[in-house]
Structures are given as structure tokens and as C-alpha cells.
Amino acid sequence: MMKITVINTGGTFNKRYNPIKGQLEVPKDNIALNKIIESCHNVQFDIKNIISKDSLDMTDVDRERICTEIQNSISDNIIIIHGTDTIHLTSAMIKKRIVDKKIVFTGAMVPMSIDESEATMNFSMALGFLSANPSLGTYIAMHGVVVNSSKLVKNREEGKFLIQE
């Protein structure tokens, strides 16, 4: 059975509408993730819900915490759920510091609570990629591809991630 550590840091993937405050919030739970993984019967997940922030609010202290969680993980297969606005900053830091694991960042531009398809697809791509036993490294799984983390960039004008050659 494949073992995967999932580090859930929040981001749009997890956001839910708070009717009392009238805004989307990043909750401190794994409801969005749990909905996806309940269908994964051949994977053992170790879920670490560690930050619960929009990525625009993440700091270098948060990124250090992610590094520590990866280094302390008993699994060499890591999926990091991360907000899309600063996924490039965190993945660049991880890529420089951790070279002995297979790390796949993923997230969503639309909250799973609003539309399940994008978050489910992106997480499933990350999971499938790891099940194919890729080379050690840091990757991003978004919008139909899984590539080296330095090759996928968020195009803010178009609202999607594109491969940068």
C-alpha cells in the first residue's frame, strides 16, 4: 500500500463561505480533503493540517514550518495543498532545501465548497503522479499537468496555470 503524507496549508482549495461574516474563510479542518480521499482505498494517508491560511497571508515562518513537516515525514511521497497565489514561493524554497523526497504541490483557483471538480482533479493528478513513482523532486499539479515546480506559473490575466518553457 502506498503511503503519502498530505500537508494541508489551506488556500482556496479549502475555503468555505461563512454566512455570519459574509465571506470566504480558510477553515482549520480537512473537510474538503476528506471528501476526496474517502474514495482512495489503496493509499495510506498521513494528513497534517498545519497552517490554514490564504497563501497571500503566508510568511517565511510558515514556509519554514512546511519544510520541517516535510523533513519529519516518514513518507518520501508528499502532497502539499497550498494557495495558488504564492505556491511558486513556497515550492522554490522547498526545491532548494529538500532533495530526497517526491513532493507535489497542488491547490485550486475555485474553492472545493463551490465547485468540486478543479480541486478534485488537481489532487487526483498529484496522487496519480506519485503512484507512478517519479524521480525525486518538487512538482506542481495544476490544470491538467504535473511538472517541475519551476516550470508552472500562474497567469493572473487568464486565471490559470500555464507551462513556462
Rank of each mutant, 00 (worst) to 15 (best):
I78M: 01
I70E: 02
P27G: 11
D76R: 13
I80V: 05
D60Y: 12
I79C: 03
K53G: 05
V43A: 11
S52V: 03
I50A: 00
L56M: 13
V43I: 15
I31R: 13
I50S: 08
L24C: 01
V43R: 08
I47E: 03
T59G: 07
N42A: 13
L33A: 05
S39Y: 13
Q44V: 13
E69I: 01
S73I: 07
R65A: 14
N77D: 15
E25K: 00
Q23S: 04
C67W: 10
N30P: 00
N49C: 04
V61P: 02
E64I: 14
I78N: 03
I70R: 00
V26T: 13
Q71L: 10
E69K: 05
D46I: 12
C40Y: 15
D29A: 12
I36T: 06
I74W: 03
F45T: 11
I70D: 08
I78W: 07
K48Y: 03
I37M: 04
V61S: 07
C40M: 15
P27Y: 10
I50L: 08
D76A: 01
I50F: 02
M58S: 01
D57I: 00
L56A: 04
T68D: 14
D29Q: 08
D62T: 05
N72K: 08
H41T: 15
E69F: 03
L56E: 07
L33Q: 11
N42H: 14
P27I: 01
I47T: 02
K28L: 07
L33H: 06
K48H: 08
I66E: 09
L33N: 09
L33G: 05
I70C: 07
K35E: 15
E64N: 13
K28N: 14
N72V: 07
T59S: 11
N77G: 08
C40E: 15
Q71T: 11
S52W: 02
C40F: 14
R65H: 14
N34C: 06
R65K: 15
T59K: 03
Q71A: 04
L56F: 09
I37P: 12
H82A: 09
V26Q: 11
I36C: 13
I70N: 01
C67Q: 14
D60V: 00
I78A: 01
P27Q: 11
H82I: 00
N77W: 06
D76T: 03
